[in-house]
């Protein structure tokens, strides 16, 4: 009897913290998403009207589109480069491998705010190093953080083709933020892939070599399939984290970018709540946006899981 009481005492501190700062807020947030409230004394119950207003709001769907651009921009590139680097760094008998791993992981531990400061300087229109490089190759300087044109549209401009809006791609400003995301994620993907590669027995490759398989074939038939659980993990992880990008957006484009083209979901959410005091509306937005992530994550798990090989 006494023992049992001790057990409850042991979990009490954690339970209190999680209860007060996680469970209660979750319920509370759900409740205020059905109200209209600016923190004043009167809170009006408005039913589903916040959700209804969101579904017909072009601004909201734009922010969803920009967030999707960001996720689709960061994810595949980080995964491919991360896998490539992991393959290069796989052989730990190679000299300097530890040194390179240290370097590639450095951006992961760097705060997104500091990284965003560094990138703002590199992509400064007049004094930035990026435009200096372009200039030294004879190109025109780019207004990186103030250009709202979609990057795919810019490519097609020279052929005089006007792409449908969704295919115009992230604005130049959002592309810079995507580059920052890639830079920060590569090291993470590399380290996770390295761990995955370590789990593949060397004997598989030897057997393949005896059967006459070349590098490309054993990569396709052994490495990729056996890494699929790692890829799935990274896919889910990066999707969830990229959906929540906020800090770099706020530092690099404090107003939400040229024509609001960097206003990703969390940026808009923050703005609605803490700049316009529309707490009910913002809460509804949070629930709507994150039920989307939940659905995407579940779909990734369900459909890709089938194609994943667990040895």
């Amino acid at each position: 009897m006494k023992k049992r009481a001790v057990a409850y005492l042991f979990i009490l501190p954690a339970a209190l913290v999680l209860g007060i700062f996680m469970f209660y807020p979750l319920a509370y947030s759900f409740m205020i998403s059905f109200t209209q409230w600016d923190l004043s004394a009167t809170r009006t119950y408005v039913g589903l009207s916040n959700y209804r207003a969101l579904i017909v709001s072009p601004d909201f769907w734009n922010s969803v589109l920009y967030t999707v651009y960001y996720v689709l921009g960061v994810l595949p590139v980080s995964l491919v480069i991360g896998l490539g680097l992991a393959l290069l760094l796989r052989d730990s008998s190679m000299r300097g491998v530890g040194f390179f791993r240290t370097i590639y992981f450095m951006p992961v531990v760097t705060s997104p705010i500091a990284a965003a400061m560094g990138f703002s300087w590199i992509f400064h229109t007049q004094l930035g190093y990026a435009n200096h490089l372009i200039d030294s190759f004879g190109g025109e300087p780019v207004n990186w953080l103030t250009n709202y044109n979609g990057i795919f549209q810019l490519l097609f401009d020279r052929f005089g083709v006007e792409l449908p809006r969704v295919l115009q791609g992230p604005s130049v400003a959002l592309t810079v933020i995507i580059l920052l995301g890639i830079w920060q994620n590569i090291g993470y993907a590399t380290v996770v892939y390295l761990a995955g590669l370590q789990g593949i027995p060397q004997t598989y490759y030897e057997a393949a070599r005896i059967d006459g398989a070349n590098w490309g074939k054993s990569f396709r038939r052994i490495t990729l399939p056996l890494l699929s659980p790692t890829t799935l993990f990274l896919l889910v992880m990066f999707t969830i984290l990229s959906f929540q990008v906020f800090g770099p957006v706020q530092v690099m484009t404090p107003q939400g970018g040229p024509l609001q083209t960097t206003s990703v979901i969390v940026f808009r959410l923050y703005q609605q709540a803490f700049a316009f005091y529309r707490f009910g509306y913002a809460s509804a937005m949070a629930f709507l946006a994150f039920s989307m992530i939940l659905i995407i994550t579940l779909m990734q798990l369900k459909y890709i899981e089938r194609r994943v090989h667990y040895d």
């Binding site: 007060i20 700062f21 996680m22 209660y24 807020p25 979750l26 509370y28 947030s29 205020i32 923190l39 969830i240 929540q244 979901i265 969390v266 959410l269 709540a273 707490f279 913002a282 809460s283 949070a286 629930f287 946006a289 994150f290 992530i293």
Partner: peptide
């Protein structure tokens, strides 16, 4: 997700 919690956490 953190973003669902932020408003009520702030209020608490």
């Amino acid at each position: 997700p953190q973003q669902i919690l932020m408003i009520p956490q702030y209020l608490v």
